[in-house]
Structures are given as C-alpha cells and as structure tokens.
Design a protein around this nucleic acid. Structure first.
Lengths: 137, 137
DNA sequence: TATTGTTATACTCTATAACTATA
DNA sequence: TATAGTTATAGAGTATAACAATA
C-alpha cells in the first residue's frame, strides 16, 4: 500500500476532530467555552502571569485579558499582584474554579476511558508514537 | 507504573494542541480561518447541502449560512440550487476554492511529513490505535 | 404540518493599535 | 526606553429564536 500515509493522516484528522468536539462539549456542559476551559486548566496546574498565559495559549495578550476578566467575574480565578513587579499579575484558580475544572475533566471522558481499555503495551506504544509525531524537527 | 494512562492522556492533549495550532496557522497563511478551511475541505471532497455541512461541522445551520456567505463573497464556493428540492442548496467548490484548499493542505505539513518519517509498520500501528481510540462504545 | 435555509440578534473569541503604569 | 497589562475597536465564530419558502 503506497497510500498508507494518507490513510494515517485521515485517521489523525478524524481523531483530532472527535477529540476537539468532545472537549468542546465537556466545557459547554459546565457552562464554559473551550477557550475558558483551557485557561482554567492552565492555571489549575500553577498560577501563571498574563504574559505566560498568552504564550501558553498561543494567543495575544489582549485576548488573555478578556478571558481572565470573564472567568474572574464568575469567581473562577483571581488576579494576584506580583510583589516583585508591580506591573505584573498572576492568575490563580479559586476554590470554585478548581471545582469547575474538575467537572470539565470528568465530563471529558473521551481519552481517559478509551485509553484505559487499551492493553498497557499498546498504551506505551501510543505514547511513544505521539511523542515522535509531536516533537519538532 | 500505575499512572501510565495519565501520561498517555497528557501526550494526547499535547499532540492535539500542536495539531490544532498547526492547522490554524496553515489556514491563516492562506487568509482563511480554521472554520473556513474546514468547510472548504468538506466541500472539496464533494458538494454538500447546507444541512449536511451543519452535521459534518457539528454546528448550527445559521453558522453554516454565514461561513458560506463569506466564502462565496470571496469566490471560493458557490450555492447551487437543488433541482429536486427548491428549498435546498448545494455548496460546490470553485476553481479558485480548489486552489486555496490545495494551498492550505500544502501549508499543513504537520502530520504528513512526520508520518512519512515513521517506518511503515509504525504507521499501521498508529492507524490501528487511533481507530480503536476514535471509535464509539 | 414539517423541513431547508436565512435573518436578526447577542455573546464570545481573537487580533491590532493606542494607552497606562512600572521597570 | 522597554515591558506588563489594559482599553478601544472591529471582524469572525457561534447559537437561539423568529421567519420565508417549499415539501
């Protein structure tokens, strides 16, 4: 089969399509957009400055300002002033935000449930393949 | 390792993140949004009605109306009346649209180039794993 | 009466440019 | 002067509800 790469590429497309749709659905079930859920996930790992979030989310700083403003208005995150640099603000998740973040993860059962069904060896193989595909160069 | 599933889930997240970002970049290089590029790809396979596109793109029909209106204004697609049902319209890609679609595919080198570098056996393994992960139940 | 698609509307996402405050 | 973040603005994505035309 000389067209194996095309088959694989199509499988990848379909998979990512389904993955994205499932994440969007999970976020909306909890009343968030996918962008808001992503930001919440980012700050649930550790508090991050506005600039760090822009880098992490691959978007403009002004976009982060507005996303954070909406999430803060709902009490899910807070802007904490940085003592070392008065210009900077660090976004921290609140208790309510942590709860909402957990609900998004629960609703986003797509990958975890299906991964669990794979034999451990297949799981390792998949992780390795994704690592190769995802790495630069 | 009891946390292998988490590691795999994180790899999946990172991979999809990079994949989506690469597609968005490819579309923008050509002057399209990711949503527009997706619709163009859909009708490049075969002409589809507005309703079929809404199903395919997992979005509301009114959204399709607006996306098609923008693409049509740029001469990339056309609304063709359905002879069998005067309510219905089929969206067909134009010559200019085909060219733009091809440029998006070229710019979206992310998966193809990397897949090509994998040995054929790994490609088959990946396709099988994605198939299992992506299928329902 | 049900279906296909559009319109009106509103909210979110996103970026660019201009701005404020601090370094 | 440079950097962190915000504001003003505008275009695009998205959905809901109401609507027109056709089946």
């Amino acid at each position: 089969m000389t067209d194996t790469p095309n088959v694989v590429a199509q499988r990848l497309w379909d998979f990512v399509y389904a993955y994205d749709a499932a994440y969007d659905r999970a976020a909306r079930e909890v009343g968030l957009s996918a962008a808001q859920a992503c930001l919440l996930k980012a700050v649930s790992e550790e508090p991050r400055t506005m600039g760090e979030l822009a880098t992490y989310l691959l978007c403009d700083a002004s976009n982060v300002t507005q996303l954070v403003t909406r999430l803060e208005a709902r009490g899910l995150v807070t802007r904490v002033p940085e003592p070392t640099d008065l210009r900077s603000k660090r976004v921290a998740i609140t208790g309510a935000g942590t709860e909402v973040d957990r609900r998004v993860r629960d609703a986003f059962a797509f990958p975890r449930q299906r991964i669990d069904r794979l034999p451990p060896e297949s799981q390792r193989t998949l992780a390795d393949l994704l690592n190769v595909l995802g790495s630069e160069t």
